[in-house]
Amino acid sequence: DHWHVHIDGERIRLDGASEEFIRTLEELIRRGTDARELKEIIKEYLR
């Protein structure tokens, strides 16, 4: 599956992301997590 998110107007691909990770991201977004912080979390995950 190819997922991607838009954060700060930037399109970030989440290739190979699990549904669990996507749900976690959605939860963080709902909580109002800062965009820079979200991008860091995604970069760490994709390593």
Rank of each mutant, 00 (worst) to 15 (best):
Leu38Pro: 00
Glu44Lys: 11
His6Cys: 10
Ile22Trp: 05
Asp15Met: 11
Ile7Val: 08
Asp8Trp: 01
Leu38Tyr: 01
Ile7Tyr: 02
Thr33Val: 13
Tyr45Asn: 03
Ile7Asn: 01
Ser18Phe: 04
Phe21Arg: 00
Arg36Ala: 13
Ile41Met: 12
Glu40Ile: 13
Asp1Gln: 12
Arg23Glu: 06
Arg23Asp: 04
Arg11Glu: 15
Ile41Arg: 10
Thr33Gly: 05
Glu20Arg: 08
Leu38Asn: 00
Leu38His: 00
Asp8Lys: 04
Ile12Gly: 01
Ala17Asp: 03
Arg11His: 15
Glu40Pro: 01
Asp1Phe: 12
Ile22Lys: 14
Ala17Glu: 03
Leu14Gly: 01
Ile42Leu: 06
Ile22Arg: 14
Arg23Phe: 07
Arg11Met: 15
Leu25Ile: 12
Arg13Val: 15
Glu20Leu: 12
Phe21Ser: 00
Tyr45Glu: 03
His4Arg: 02
Asp15Thr: 13
Glu44Asn: 11
Glu27Trp: 13
Glu27Leu: 14
Gly16Asp: 07
Arg47Gln: 14
Phe21Tyr: 03
Glu26His: 11
Asp8Leu: 04
Leu28Phe: 08
Asp15His: 11
Ile12Pro: 01
Arg36Trp: 14
Gly32Thr: 02
Ile12His: 03
Leu14Ile: 14
Glu44Val: 06
Arg30Phe: 08
Ser18Ile: 05
Arg13Asn: 15
His2Ile: 11
Arg47Ala: 13
Trp3Thr: 08
Gly9Ser: 05
Leu38Cys: 01
Thr33Arg: 05
Arg13Gln: 15
Ile22Pro: 00
Ile12Ser: 01
Arg11Lys: 15
Lys39Tyr: 15
Lys39Arg: 12
Val5Asp: 02
Ile42Gly: 00
Arg47Asp: 02
Lys43Pro: 00
Asp15Ser: 12
Lys39Thr: 06
Ile7Pro: 01
Glu37Leu: 14
Glu19Cys: 09
Arg47Met: 13
Leu25Pro: 00
Asp15Ile: 11
Gly16Tyr: 10
Ala35Ile: 10
Gly9Glu: 05
Ile12Thr: 02
Thr33Phe: 08
Leu28Cys: 04
Thr24Val: 11
Glu10Ala: 04
Ile7Arg: 00
Glu26Ser: 11
Glu44Ser: 08
Leu14Phe: 06
Arg11Asn: 15
Leu38Thr: 01
Ile29Trp: 06
Trp3Ser: 08
Lys39Asn: 06
Arg36Val: 11
Phe21Lys: 00
Arg47Leu: 08
Val5Thr: 08
Val5Ser: 02
